[in-house]
Amino acid sequence: MMRGTPRTFVGSVVLDLAGPVDPATAAQVRAELERHPRIRACELDAASGTLVVTARAAADRNDVVAVLERLGCPVRG
């Protein structure tokens, strides 16, 4: 689909970040995403760059990706 096509999801999505994440950025990612009203939890394995985001209500994956890109953690694939 086109970049920016709405991609609503429920449940969990696993995102692979392009490269490892330093502890300070990891903390920022957690804090920002968990502040999102539609996100219930996020687990970040900083070493492997794997992020599991679980939605509380239907959320848009693009919003999650936008937060990550703003924090300097682009998503792979």
Binding site: G11, S12, V13, V14, D16, T50, V52, T54, R76, G77
Partner: peptide
Amino acid sequence: ALETDRIVRAALVD
């Protein structure tokens, strides 16, 4: 392979 692994991990959550 990478995508498969990522999807499997998401599936195992549920």
